[in-house]
Amino acid sequence: MSTERNEILARVRAALAPLPRRAPLPEWDHELIQLRAAQPPGDTWAQFFQRFAAVNGTPLKSGAELVALLEQGGWRRGYCDPALWPALEGFFPAAFQVETTFDRARVDDYDFGITAAVGAVAETGTLILSDRGTSSRLAALAPWVHVAVVRPDQIHSDLSAALAALPDDPNIVWVTGPSKTADVEGILIEGVHGPGVQAALLLG
């Protein structure tokens, strides 16, 4: 194995040796990737929800709105992060079956999964999930509806800011809308392997 490593690295060095000079890393300014239509700072949550809706995300402002969405879709069985459940339990009528552990053997039994996000990006309408912040990778992915719960202080203005603040975590996922494909004749279909409904619930 290590012979192959050394062989490859030797070939890389040999390939680059004849170059009279190496291309330098270009300096580039943040403005290069700033979006033209970027909104003035200060109104970042409004911008987030506007962008989130533009990528077919479902914005939610309260536990009551969440329950209304689930009732409307007939999604009554689900999972909720045990840390979030105490704050949400009061909104859920008795007809709902909500579990706080995700049993992978019954993956099809969950209509929705409620887990915590660790951030949001206003410019793109993106939710940020991380391994340490998400109680179950599968619960945030397998059910038809995923509800990411975000806090008001977790917003980044744009991609550059979010990249600069990437948490120290082995698995960070930026989620920008529901799972989708256009593989069949270029026709957009939502809900491929991940959620068909991606909601964001802002809880103060």
């Binding site: 993106t126 340490r132 990778r137 599968l138 082995p170 698995n171 989620v175 799972s179």
Partner: peptide, 19 residues
């Protein structure tokens, strides 16, 4: 503007993560 899922993976799962 951005693909739906952008994943940054730097190792095996975190301690405490069931999946």
């Amino acid at each position: 503007q951005l693909t739906v899922y952008t994943e940054f993976i730097s190792g095996p799962r975190a301690a405490g993560q069931p999946d």
